[in-house]
């Protein structure tokens, strides 16, 4: 593990984050948007782990545990919202839920 340079890890994390963000912006299906957010969260977690191993500190892995817990909570709330939305609009297209426009 130690022989993988930090730049590579961070680059992977950046690529993953960009993929997630792109998915979030281009997808209209709310499930896929949640998945994309998941990818972005993991990219952030990867960046923490890589940085932690570079400095030999455990803090990075601790932060990753936090992110995992937060992601689980986010999914729980997100899926509940998805169910509500589906019941109301009979679709998973987020653009249809735009009643709160100004």
């Amino acid at each position: 593990m130690a022989n993988i340079p930090m730049e590579h890890g961070l680059l992977l994390a950046g690529v993953l984050f960009s993929i997630g963000l792109t998915g979030l912006l281009v997808r209209r299906n709310i499930i896929f948007m949640l998945l994309s957010i998941e990818v972005m969260l993991n990219a952030a977690g990867l960046a923490f782990v890589v940085a932690g191993s570079r400095w030999g500190a455990p803090d990075g892995q601790v932060m990753f545990m936090f992110i995992l817990a937060m992601a689980a909570a986010e999914v729980a709330v997100g899926l509940a919202l998805v169910l509500q939305m589906y019941q109301k609009y009979k679709t998973l297209d987020v653009d249809s839920a735009s009643k709160m426009r100004g």
């Binding site: 963000l21 912006l25 426009r101 100004g102």
Partner: peptide, 18 residues
């Protein structure tokens, strides 16, 4: 004018944040 920016589309908001 400003009202236009509030179109209720989550993805646009996300793009704005990004």
């Amino acid at each position: 004018l400003v009202r236009r920016s509030q179109d209720g589309k989550v993805r646009v908001y996300a793009a704005g944040i990004a």
